[in-house]
C-alpha cells in the first residue's frame, strides 16, 4: 500500500501558542522572515456573540498539487508519502509555484530558491514525528499515514467533523481541520 502522509489539526485543542512555528524554524534552520507554518485566527460574529477558530497551518501536501504542475523545471516534485518537495539545486526562483498555491504555503528563501513545509520528511524517514507535531503542547497536531486505516490520523478524520481549506481549488489537500 502506498503511503499517504497527512495531518489532522484539532482546532478545538489549538491555543495558538506558536510553539509549532518556533519548532519548525529551529528544526529546519529557516532564514529570518521565512516560515513553513503559521497560526491563523479567524473571529466570527460580534461582541458578545463571538467565536474564534485557531488553526496551525502549513503546506497541505495536496494530492493534486498545482505547484508541481506550475514548476517549469521539475524542482517541485511529489516525494515519499505524497509529500511535495523542492529540489533546491533545480529551483530557478521563478515563483510560478508561489502564484499557483491557493494556501500561501511557499516563500522565497534569501538564497533565491523557493522553500516550503516537507512534513519534516528527514525526521519521518528516521521514524520520528515532524518537529511541529512533537512539540505541540496541547497535542492538537496528529501526523500519520492516511492509507493505513488503523493510523490515528485516519481514525480522527473518520470519526470527527472535518474540513479542509479551499476545497473548491481542485487541489485535494491532505491537512484536515477537526472542528
Amino acid at each position: 500500500m502506498r503511503k499517504r502522509y497527512a495531518m489532522a489539526v484539532d482546532t478545538a485543542r489549538c491555543v495558538g501558542c506558536s510553539a509549532c512555528v518556533i519548532a519548525c524554524k529551529t528544526e529546519n534552520a529557516l532564514p529570518s522572515g521565512g516560515f513553513r507554518d503559521w497560526i491563523a485566527e479567524e473571529t466570527r460574529g460580534a461582541f458578545p456573540a463571538l467565536s474564534m477558530e485557531i488553526r496551525s497551518e502549513r503546506c497541505n501536501q495536496c494530492s493534486r498539487p498545482s505547484c508541481v504542475s506550475a514548476c517549469p523545471t521539475g524542482a517541485s516534485h511529489v516525494a515519499d508519502g505524497g509529500v511535495v518537495g523542492v529540489t533546491r539545486a533545480k529551483c530557478t526562483g521563478c515563483k510560478a509555484c508561489v502564484a499557483s498555491c491557493p494556501y500561501g504555503a511557499r516563500y522565497v528563501h534569501p538564497e533565491g530558491f523557493v522553500d516550503k513545509c516537507t512534513f519534516c520528511l528527514h525526521r519521518v524517514r528516521e521514524g520520528k514525528l515532524p518537529a511541529c507535531v512533537e512539540t505541540c503542547p496541547t497535542r492538537a497536531l496528529t501526523f500519520g499515514d492516511l492509507a493505513d486505516p488503523a493510523s490515528r490520523v485516519a481514525e480522527l478524520t473518520r470519526s470527527r467533523r472535518v474540513k479542509v481549506l479551499q476545497p473548491g481549488s481542485g487541489n485535494e489537500p491532505n491537512v484536515f481541520f477537526l472542528t
Binding site: P72, T92, G93, H109, V114
Partner: peptide
C-alpha cells in the same frame, strides 16, 4: 525581464 525576476538567474538553463 524574466531573468531579472528570478531568484536564481544562474539556473535559467534548467527551463
Amino acid at each position: 525581464f524574466i531573468l531579472v525576476d528570478m531568484g536564481r538567474p544562474d539556473r535559467f538553463l534548467h527551463i
